[in-house]
């Protein structure tokens, strides 16, 4: 009878269990005392947990993977230093203000917490693209192309005829358009490039170099000439990798794969819910 009662008690105890919550090892450590009130680490912790902590968790997890996969070598530091120089050249005297707006208290912190991780991520992206080339090229259809944009159809038609007659797309583009984005420069385009959908269709369908035989009109009333220079990604792999390494959807795909491979597991219900509710659910392990 005693054993039956013990089993019943055990059943009831189990029924009262809840999702796990990770606790601090020294929750009552005072952070600040004012008069007769002590603010403890746990009180600060609970306050912080009431906010959106999903990005903190995901970034901490990414740091673990980054540091395991990509050592911070001198080369990585040089890449970070190069990016720092680019930022300074763009922001000039507003650089310090820009740092503060990004939440960094110093240049050193910015390099350590943003630029070095970015350089590490680029190394990881290169590896991911090389290992998943078929999937990446099929999904993103990268192409090397020249695009010229016009606001007047007649101008576009005239330039197109000149190109067909043997003129240089690059030269004619520079001379005949005021567009700052599409002036015939050679660039890598892909599924997520900021170009009209009609041009994406042309690029996707191109399996070999081509020149559009008619001027293309987009949904916003502008006119385009497209010259596909290279449609086989393996022939411009370096440019492709550089371009696709900055594509946020592909970066996400890479990280989701890394999290899965690294057996990401969560042992705290608030952290789980934060990730789920903070639009980071793609990283969640299945329950």
């Amino acid at each position: 009878m005693k054993k039956i009662l013990i089993l019943l008690s055990l059943g009831l105890v189990l029924a009262g269990c809840a999702d796990a919550t990770a606790k601090l090892s020294t929750p009552n450590t005072p952070v600040l005392e004012i008069g007769d009130t002590v603010i403890t680490q746990d009180q600060v912790f609970q306050y912080l947990l009431s906010g959106d902590t999903s990005s903190v968790i995901i970034n901490m997890a990414k740091n673990v993977i980054r540091n395991a996969q990509v050592e911070i070598t001198d080369e990585i530091k040089e890449l970070a230093a190069a990016d720092l120089k680019v930022m300074k050249d763009i922001l000039l005297e507003d650089f310090e203000l820009g740092l503060k707006q990004l939440g960094f208290s110093s240049e050193e912190e910015y390099v350590e917490r943003a630029l070095i991780p970015l350089a590490q991520q680029n190394v990881m992206m290169k590896k991911y693209i090389e290992e998943n080339l078929d999937f990446v090229t099929a999904t993103y259809f990268p192409r090397r192309a020249r695009i010229i944009e016009f606001t007047v159809e007649a101008d576009a038609k005239e330039v197109l005829e000149d190109i067909k007659a043997g003129g240089s797309t690059e030269t004619l583009g520079k001379e005949n358009t005021t567009s700052l984005d599409f002036f015939g420069q050679l660039a890598t385009y892909h599924r997520d490039s900021t170009i009209p959908n009609s041009l994406k269709t042309i690029l996707k369908d191109a399996n070999a170099p081509l020149l559009t035989q008619e001027v293309v009109k987009d949904e916003n009333g502008k006119f385009y000439i497209v010259e596909v220079i290279e449609a086989v990604p393996s022939r411009f792999q370096e440019e492709m990798i550089k371009s696709l390494s900055a594509v946020s959807s592909l970066i996400d795909t890479m990280w989701v794969a890394e999290f899965k491979e690294a057996n990401f597991a969560i042992y705290d219900i608030k952290a789980y819910n934060a990730i789920k509710d903070g639009n980071q659910s793609k990283f969640l392990p299945s329950r």
């Binding site: 606790k23 600060v44 901490m60 969560i266 042992y267 705290d268 952290a271 329950r287």
Partner: peptide, 30 residues
């Protein structure tokens, strides 16, 4: 239910790549 985990007496918030992140480390970053 979400199971909990402790390592060396410290509660773990998450684990990745074989590395455990404790509640203490999580708190320090927050």
């Amino acid at each position: 239910l979400l199971p909990g985990k402790t390592v060396d007496g410290k509660d773990i918030v998450f684990e990745i790549n074989g590395q455990s992140i404790t509640a203490d480390e999580y708190y320090l970053e927050l």
